[in-house]
Write a protein that binds this DNA or RNA. Structure first.
Lengths: 239, 239
DNA sequence: AAACTCATTATTGTATACATCATGCTGCCC
DNA sequence: GGGCAGCATGATGTATACAATAATGAGTTT
């Protein structure tokens, strides 16, 4: 807001676009700031998969030139969140049921590995960390607030990544999780999904706290696989 | 070589730099072409991990402007091959022993999943595909040509990715493999690494051809884990 | 009327100019 | 003599101008 009418490095007066705040660089670069905003917009579903991203439009909307926008696109392509078709623009990546199935298969394995490592490595005090999160999740089942449930669920899994003490694995798993986020959100709203999730989480917790790596692996693997199945059911209902 | 003095879209005569060919766009974009060349240079070890990438220098070397160079950097950052430190340039990613260990742990799991899926899904005819590759690898053990061995070894694993019939998993595994490529190459030259590899490959093949998913998983997992151990030994010898 | 061709237009790719920030050095002060 | 302030230099980030290609529509032809 403070650099609104100012941004005149040349004589041209910049037309102030709508509301979305010209993205003041809070210390980091414009391209990086854009990347974060666009990533959030994609994960939240404000930008639908398959929709085309117009460089000029976004540049105008955020009050920057095309250059940082283009760089942000490349950055997003790195996370596989957008697809760059040479000379034909960028589109929000749209994942078909087939690829989604493949992704969940991989994610199940990675999250399973997290759980296995966690079971081997958690200190006795870890229960004090995870229990409050789990309880908050339980409390949200009846409320029916799917978005809140989704967020706390994320915290639960994040806590397991931490416990696995493998930063690279955590990054990979998080990245994958982010890629399917736009689709997952919808599943949370399915009939018994929330209560099922709680039950599955409890099995995972039991195994980890009992230091049983194989059981933890299996429980987590099944949990994610079930979620994938639900998602595919959901998608099938639409076609 | 063929379009040397030509590249004049404006009136400026371009100074022809050294030898490295001005990168003729073979249909795709300059940035993409650069990405491929730089990726190859990194994987082959011509660009050492930790070395700084100077935008201007590379732009001059390839006879293009800084813009496509910057885009190529962003693209490479997507594959985690270079690190972008805002305002402080790009450097070839240098992976410490600790992270390398973490990466091999994940890679072992992913390659293990490939083997497991392959064991479940290979058609009876698959032996005719993999055997020739394996035999070529065996033939290379005594020759001592580590680079050739490395390449054929890659073919072997690639054939298993194919057999697993999960494109996303194949992409992920390949990407990870690429990230550690610059380090792996060195390990191939260790004393008994080649013959050990052959033995381990045979165990993997037996399990896959016998349609034993769990055995295939375990064999591949161990194979990759052993490689990781060897790599760490190698690095330790340097410090 | 349908399909093809060509011209127009809009969007992306590349080059260059400018602004901004990080780094290294010089010189002053303690 | 050592350390810090301030400036000079060089690199990165951003903006804009230009070039090239893909999408679009009008016009004509069969």
């Amino acid at each position: 807001m403070h650099k609104t009418a100012a941004g005149a490095q040349n004589g041209v007066i910049r037309i102030e676009e709508g509301r979305p705040a010209p993205s003041p660089p809070p210390g980091l670069t414009l391209a990086e700031g854009l990347r974060q905003q666009l990533e959030a917009a994609i994960a939240a579903g404000h930008l639908e998969p398959g929709s085309r991203l117009d460089e000029q439009e976004i540049a105008l909307r955020y009050g920057v030139s095309r250059t940082p926008v283009r760089e942000a696109f490349r950055l997003l392509a790195a996370s596989q969140l957008v697809e760059l078709r040479g000379r034909q623009g960028a589109v929000v990546r749209s994942i078909g049921p087939h690829v989604l199935l493949e992704m969940f298969q991989v994610m199940a394995e990675l999250e399973g590995l997290c759980a296995r490592l966690a079971a081997r490595r958690v200190p006795p005090t870890w229960g004090a960390t995870i229990e409050p999160i789990h309880q908050r999740l339980v409390a949200l089942v009846d409320g029916g607030d799917a978005d809140a449930f989704y967020d706390v669920n994320q915290e639960f899994h994040e806590a397991i990544y931490e416990a696995a003490r493998n930063g690279f694995l955590a990054d990979q798993t998080r990245r994958l999780r982010n890629q399917v986020a736009a689709y997952r959100r919808r599943v949370t709203r399915m009939p018994n999904r929330m209560s099922d999730t709680i039950r599955e989480h409890e099995a995972i917790l039991r195994a980890i706290l009992a230091h049983d790596p194989e059981a933890a692996h299996r429980a987590m693997r099944d949990h994610v696989a079930l979620l994938g199945d639900n998602l595919l059911d959901f998608l099938a209902a639409f076609e």
